[in-house]
Design a protein around this nucleic acid. Structure first.
Length: 578
RNA sequence: GCCAGCGUAGCUCAGCGGCAGAGCAAUUCUUUCGUAAAGAAUAGGCCGUCGGUUCAAAUCCGACCGCUGGCUCCA
């Protein structure tokens, strides 16, 4: 791939520039990534302001028409070379290449005479081939050597690189568009949620408008579940430590649990998950095969003590509202139940024009200690999920090591209007929790069989899903979801009375009257910026004829219409969605 | 948690050792308006918090709190 050569070559040029500007720099790795490249350095102290300097140096190096040349060196020679230059990371890499004997060779790539790097190759022939108008250093960040937090933190410089200037501009434009749609910004502008320093980081507070949207989303999920025999249950937000010791969460996530010690010294945990509570509801009595499946759903908050550095807007929070459901069934019912959930997921996401891709999240067979239970259970569960995906004839990517600690998952990835992918819904098949909690039912033969448990979240977390929706729609929610659907805008306050009478007639919708003392133009501008789906402009003409002038969001003036007709059309438009 | 950057009015930001500033928003008054910003006046500040340097700190230094972008983590 030509573009990969370009990006990789730029990484080397970046390293060469850093070597010149920071003689003490130690070099990590410099791979190609989506849209560009990065290179990791130690002993490089810099900030965003220093980037033009480095960029300039890169241009000056690249314009010297330096050839990229790969040679094979004996590992011992390369080791000696990097030892002399005090490059511990390169030495570690050579060691890790697993040289079998002394004759083993490693690749060394030179950029003219300015830089020599351990590298497998894949460059353009000469720096003169590099499109100097199509690259840009993007940002500086910290990154652990080899991605391990026990290792030293290096300075990572990210760069963007494309084959042409046009592609770079296009990408920069997309980034700009994404910034405009940033849910943190729109959330404040549209007054959907807020944070308080007194409440704490990662704990979003939802305003009246934001709460309307949350409730509508949750109602939608529930309307789909109810059709399939789900029952709502309600649970407390804390439980004794022992519940999580039994479930295995205590061992696995001890550090991320919010804990409470009562005045009598008992230890409680703020729930980080709902399954153990749902399990206790299921376990209140003995079940027969005739009673199964039992399907319990709760939309409820869970709390996880995420590290502060991981928190971000609504995407990653400490108080998470899950639309969580658990199905308790016999082995023979799992397939049907999973297909039902899958159908709900398809219906739900198509309502938002979000297309879904499937990820099969399986265990990493190399790390059995990370998972509960025995191999046979895991093999069974993974086989069932793969069989269903095959029957549905849906392509999927297999993600080894992405399973939950209690079972494999079908994870659904949504692609938004900017082409970005987000993990959303999840279906998890779990044979391990039922075992740990000893969940059984009486089968047709009168014996006891093990319960199979399915964890299902349609939105996943409402906070996160809302952030995706805000960015997907750039804040312009579809009519059924808009917290304010209609604004009635009197031309002047002489018509406030007429506006009031209209509002009363439209009270099945979410309507507001803009009767403050402002010019019409100002109020329309406000309405457009608040992304209100319909503005009804009313003045003398409208009052005399009993009509409204309809202005549709983004479309401008649609002309006059009888109120009844408008009302009917809006009702129809809402109906289309649900 | 780690690395880097940033915290000044409700919002967006200027000021960067010597009296705390602008636009928008808010309030009051004027205006009564026909499809994306009417005009005037008023009010609004522990310059994130605590400590240090200095005759003097929003400004320089340190710690903490918070935010942003990465890294690590993510049931």
């Amino acid at each position: 791939m030509e573009i990969e050569y370009i990006r990789h070559s730029f990484a080397h040029v970046l390293a060469a520039a850093v070597k010149k500007l920071f003689p003490k720099a130690q070099f990590g790795i410099g791979p190609v990534i989506e849209n560009g490249f990065y290179y990791d350095f130690k002993n490089v102290k810099m900030a965003d302001q220093d980037m033009p300097k480095i960029e300039q140096e890169m241009r000056s190096i690249a314009s010297q028409n330096l050839a990229f040349k790969k040679e094979l060196w004996p590992a011992s020679k390369a080791t000696a070379h990097f030892k002399k230059l005090k490059q511990p990371f390169k030495l570690e890499l050579i060691k890790e290449l697993g040289m079998k004997d002394k004759k083993s060779k490693v690749g060394m790539v030179s950029t003219g005479d300015v830089f020599l790097d351990l590298c497998r190759g894949g460059h353009v022939k000469n720096t003169k081939e590099l499109p100097l108008d199509a690259f840009k250093l993007a940002k500086v960040a910290g990154a652990y050597w080899r991605g391990d937090e026990k290792n030293p933190m290096l300075t990572r410089i990210y760069g963007l690189a494309f084959a042409t200037r046009k592609e770079l501009d296009q990408h920069l434009h997309t980034l700009q568009e994404a910034e405009k749609r940033d849910h943190k910004k729109l959330g404040a502008e549209l007054d959907l949620f807020t944070f308080s320093e007194l409440v704490g980081p990662g704990l979003p507070l939802f305003t009246p408008k934001g709460t309307i949207v949350r409730d509508l989303l949750d109602d939608f999920v529930w309307s789909l579940r109810r059709k399939h025999g789900y029952q709502r249950v309600d649970i407390p937000h804390i439980a004794k430590k022992e519940l999580y010791e039994t479930s295995g969460h205590w061992d696995k996530f001890k550090n991320e649990l919010f804990r409470i010690t009562t005045r009598e010294g008992h230890e409680f945990v703020v729930k980080p998950m709902n399954c153990p509570h749902h399990i206790q509801i299921f376990n209140r009595r003995k079940w027969s095969f005739r009673d199964l499946p039992q399907r319990y759903a709760s939309t409820t908050k869970i709390y996880r003590d995420e590290q502060t550095g991981e928190l971000s807007g609504l995407t990653r929070v400490r108080s998470i509202t899950q639309d969580d459901a658990h199905v308790f069934c016999g082995m023979g019912q799992t397939e049907r139940e999973i297909k039902i959930i899958w159908e709900i997921i398809d219906t739900f996401y198509s309502a938002f024009n979000l297309s879904l891709k499937l990820r099969m999240s399986l265990r990493d067979p190399k790390k059995p200690k990370q998972y509960l239970g025995d191999k046979k259970n895991w093999d069974d569960a993974e086989t069932i999920l793969m069989k269903i995906a095959k029957e549905k004839n849906v392509a999927y990517v297999e993600a080894r090591g992405e399973a939950a600690f209690y079972g494999p998952k079908l994870d659904f990835m949504a692609t938004d209007s900017l082409g970005r992918q987000w993990q959303v819904a999840t279906i998890q098949l779990d044979l391990n929790m039922p075992k740990r909690f000893n969940l059984t039912f009486t089968n047709e033969q009168g014996g006891q069989s093990q319960i199979f448990m399915i964890h299902a979240a349609i939105m996943g977390a409402i906070e996160r899903f809302l952030s995706i929706l805000i960015e997907h729609y750039a804040g312009a929610f579809p009519l059924w979801l808009a917290p304010e659907q209609i604004w009635i805008v009197p031309v002047s306050d002489k018509w406030n009375g007429y506006a009031k009478s209209l509002a009363a007639k439209l009270n099945r919708f979410r309507v507001n009257i803009q009767d403050e003392n402002e010019t019409l133009g100002k109020k329309i501008r406000e309405g457009e910026m608040q992304k209100i789906p319909y503005l009804l402009i009313v003045g003398e003409k409208e009052q005399q004829t009993g009509t409204v002038s309809v202005r549709k969001r983004g479309k401008g003036n649609m002309g006059q219409m009888r109120l009844e007709e408008f009302s009917r059309k809006v009702a129809e438009e809402i109906q289309k969605y649900l």
